[in-house]
């Protein structure tokens, strides 16, 4: 909430005034958007599942997965959800310095995850799995790449929040803004929880 009415300001927090559901428009919109994203990732995941054994004679992603490596980067992303929620909790209490720090840590953990993905893609490519090698490869890169783009957008939003906080434009009053970006971030994380199990951990039959 950047523009709050006098009446609204007397309310506690959460900006839940005066909408029929008691949820602010922005938060409701973000949740609806995330619901629709389930259909988007679902389509990509099913495409990969359908194609994961279709190697056309060439190497398959499942042949060259580096589970220990991916486990570490998955863990990093998972923990970034913790730092995100700590950032929100700090901003809620008005501890902006602490909030900024956690925001930055979250963005950095996201950056580590993306770095890991870049490393993974490069080494797969060296092992002969190009984007156009076979349907399995195309589906794998598209799915994980799509997720990577989502994480990168999240990093961008976190950094924007951090800059805004640095300039004093983001204060305790904007708690909900942080919360909404957080929702997006956690969502990207739970998508990865799914991908990690279904794509990486379940070995070929």
């Amino acid at each position: 909430m950047s523009t709050a009415t006098a009446t609204a300001d007397t309310h506690h927090d959460h900006d839940s005034h005066a909408t029929n559901t008691g949820i602010s428009n922005n938060k409701l919109a973000m949740w609806l958007f995330l619901s629709t994203e389930c259909l988007l990732f679902g389509a990509l995941i099913s495409t990969y599942l359908l194609y994961k054994t279709r190697g056309n004679g060439d190497v398959l992603p499942t042949d060259i997965f580096d589970i220990p490596f991916t486990s570490v980067s998955s863990f990093v992303l998972l923990m970034s959800s913790l730092t995100m929620v700590l950032a929100l909790s700090a901003v809620t209490r008005g501890e902006m310095d602490r909030g900024k720090a956690w925001l930055l840590v979250t963005a950095m953990l996201g950056g580590v995850f993306i770095g890991g993905q870049v490393y993974e893609f490069t080494s797969f490519y060296r092992e002969g799995l190009g984007y156009t090698t076979n349907p399995a490869a195309s589906a794998f890169y598209t799915l994980t790449g799509f997720h990577g783009v989502h994480v990168s957008l999240g990093i961008l939003m976190l950094m924007s929040l951090w800059v805004a906080a640095q300039q004093g434009k983001l204060t305790q009053k904007n708690t909900e803004t942080v919360e909404i970006v957080g929702l997006y971030w956690h969502f990207v994380d739970i998508v990865w929880i799914f991908i990690f199990t279904v794509i990486y951990l379940i070995p070929p039959a």
Binding site: M1, S2, T3, A4, T5, A8, D15, A18, T19, S24, N25, N26, K27, A29, M30, F33, E37, L40, G145, F146, V149, H150, L153, L156, M157, S160, L161, N174, E176, T177, I180, V181, Y184
Partner: peptide, 28 residues
Amino acid sequence: HGHDDHHDEAAELAAVASGAGSDNEGEG
């Protein structure tokens, strides 16, 4: 005059960015 209609720039940014994002992927 300003009519407070409950906006939040970051949420709009998020919505716009992720909406536009599905198109930007085309570059990748």
